[in-house]
Simulated scan of single mutants.
Amino acid sequence: MARSPIFLERRGYRLRRMMDALRFLPLLGLGLWMVPLLWPASETTAQGDLDSMPLSMALQYIFGIWALLVLAAWGLWRHTREQATKDGEPSAEAD
Rank of each mutant, 00 (worst) to 15 (best):
I65G: 07
P36G: 03
L32C: 11
A73F: 11
G31N: 06
Y13K: 03
M1N: 10
E9C: 05
M1S: 12
I62E: 13
L25W: 08
F7T: 12
A41D: 10
R3I: 15
W39R: 02
P40K: 00
R17Q: 07
V70C: 04
T45N: 13
G88F: 15
A41K: 14
L68G: 01
I65F: 09
L25I: 05
G48C: 06
A84F: 11
D49N: 10
R17T: 04
P40Y: 01
I62D: 08
R23A: 01
M18H: 04
Y13E: 12
G12M: 10
M34T: 13
D87K: 11
W39S: 05
F63R: 08
D20I: 05
A46I: 04
S42Q: 04
R81Q: 08
L27I: 08
R23T: 00
P40E: 02
A84R: 09
L8W: 11
V70H: 06
L15P: 10
D51G: 04
I62C: 04
L37G: 13
M1Y: 09
P26C: 12
E43Q: 12
Q83M: 08
P40D: 03
F63Y: 03
L50V: 13
M18L: 08
T80Q: 00
V70S: 06
R17N: 07
W39C: 06
L32Y: 10
E43D: 12
L8E: 15
I6L: 07
R17M: 08
D49A: 09
M57C: 04
S56T: 00
G48I: 09
A84L: 08
M34N: 13
L68Q: 07
L68A: 06
G75E: 01
E43P: 09
T80C: 00
A2K: 11
M34G: 13
A84G: 14
L38H: 13
D51K: 02
R17K: 06
P54I: 02
L32G: 10
G12A: 10
L38A: 14
